Simulated scan of single mutants.
Amino acid sequence: MLRTSVIVCTYNGDLYLEEQLNSLIIQESSPDEIIIVDDCSTDNSWDLICCFEKLNPEFNIRIFRNEDNLGYIKNFSLAANLATHELVFFCDQDDVWSSDKICKVVQKFSEDSKLTCLHTNAYVVGENLEDLGKDLFAMLKISRHELKLMDVGRYFEVLLRRNVVTGATMVIRRDILSRVLPIPTGWIHDEWIPMVSCLIGRVSYEKTRLISYRIHRNNTIGLNGGGRKLIFFTRRQLIREFYSFKASKLIGLQQRNIASDAERNYLDAFISHLHFRVLVSELPYRKKVIPIFNKVLDGSYSRFSRGWLSALRDFLFL
């Protein structure tokens, strides 16, 4: 049976941390190790972590406290490198795991030796774990078209457009860590790791809700944070900055030379489309019509963005 490491990264999370940690030790299939890395919390998080370790000696709990604040991306990278077992479960400090999460995820990986990264659905709950009436996939607005692409192994096309993987639900094989770490500047861990994983192995999802994903005002990133909000641009400068930044990130991925020929061709075309959208944003209205219309006709807007909606947006924004 595959052995499991759970990595928990904490920073000023004492309000919800105890509930999360307790959900890890009541799993139907116990984790083989729990690694907790605190990023210089100034609240009671570290005291709770020390108490948790002391009260549960039957579990292999390893705790660490950073000397300097690293930020959540570097902290997750550090924690992942500390993991010693085959499957690495990423765990946020403010959620609650369903008791069957580990056993169901282990089963998925056991059935598919090529699976390198898995993410799952989740209950979306409020501060007091009250059901908010939608699951995580619905809140992320993952479309039927995206699910179809994901089902047939075309994750790369989905992830280039936008990230649909939530780090709090992500599990990876430890043997890919050398290929995905360190996280490059500008990328989020749950954005970069699945992107590379689908190029060197296989990414999949589990539609079962295996955690309660808590929405609260202090979310670092997520549905209530900066990482999952749909961005509406109202100024040319913002448009240029966003698409230029995304293109520069993808050029960095391109330079890793890990994509197959087909994936490389798609990536090259995707970057070209981003550059086109930057250039067209600088044109006056009357000069935008023909180039945008031509890109609609050749299918670029459908292949690399949201079709007519994206084309209309590129035409209308000031």
Rank of each mutant, 00 (worst) to 15 (best):
L159N: 00
L159V: 04
L159G: 02
L160M: 14
L160R: 04
L160W: 02
L160F: 07
R162H: 12
R162A: 11
N163W: 05
N163R: 08
V164G: 00
V165D: 01
V165E: 02
T166P: 00
T166D: 12
T166V: 14
T166N: 13
T166Y: 07
G167Q: 08
G167W: 08
A168F: 08
T169G: 02
T169Y: 03
M170C: 03
V171M: 10
V171I: 14
I172H: 00
I172D: 02
I172P: 00
I172G: 00
R173W: 03
R174S: 15
D175S: 12
D175I: 05
D175Y: 11
I176Y: 04
L177S: 05
L177A: 09
L177F: 06
S178P: 03
S178K: 15
R179H: 13
V180G: 01
L181F: 04
L181I: 10
P182G: 06
P182D: 08
P182H: 07
P182N: 07
P184V: 09
P184I: 10
T185K: 14
G186C: 10
G186M: 06
G186L: 08
G186F: 07
I188S: 12
H189N: 13
H189V: 14
H189F: 13
D190G: 01
D190N: 10
E191C: 08
I193W: 06
I193R: 01
P194Y: 05
M195P: 02
V196R: 02
V196Q: 03
S197V: 06
C198P: 07
C198G: 10
L199P: 03
L199T: 06
I200H: 07
G201H: 08
R202H: 13
R202K: 15
V203F: 05
S204H: 10
S204C: 12
S204D: 15
Y205V: 07
Y205L: 11
Y205T: 06
Y205P: 00
E206D: 13
E206M: 15
E206P: 05
K207N: 12
K207P: 11
K207I: 15
R209A: 12
R209F: 00
R209D: 03
R209Y: 01
L210A: 04
L210Y: 04
I211V: 14
I211F: 04
S212K: 14
Y213F: 12
Y213G: 02
